[in-house]
Design a protein around this nucleic acid. Structure first.
Length: 108
DNA sequence: TGTATGACCAACA
DNA sequence: CTGTTGGCCATAC
């Protein structure tokens, strides 16, 4: 759980990642669903950039007619990310960390 | 013990 | 593009 939060905390402004990728980086392959749960549980005091996590199809996972959907879209746009109908171009905005340097920062 | 439900995913038709 | 399938796992009833 902390591992997931830590990875999400590293997401740079203007980049996004998917639940599955976050799970992989956290050393929990195949646990995408667990990531969504971890974000829901995360204390607000952590100020995690949760909005930078979308699904593997490059879309916001909330239903389009919800508040959560709108706030996530707004936060992404504030980051400078283009969002069209809940869709984000992974080709342009996916976070591709350098694994070598990334590993050095992990506390686990 | 069983079933249903998620801020999921990859493969396939 | 959409929909389905099987896999995943914690929670809730």
């Amino acid at each position: 759980m902390e591992k997931i939060w830590f990875i999400v905390a590293m997401l740079p402004k203007g980049r996004v990642s998917s639940y599955g990728k976050v799970a992989d980086l956290a050393g929990l392959p195949g646990m995408a669903r667990y990531v969504s749960k971890a974000l829901k549980m995360a204390p607000g005091t952590l100020n995690l950039p949760w909005h930078r996590v979308i699904n593997s199809q490059g879309k916001i996972s909330f239903k389009p007619d919800t508040e959560a959907f709108r706030t996530q879209m707004q936060l992404l746009r504030l980051d400078g990310v283009e969002v069209n109908r809940g869709r984000i171009s992974l080709a342009k905005f996916e976070w591709r960390p350098d694994m070598a340097t990334l590993v050095l920062q992990l506390p686990f």
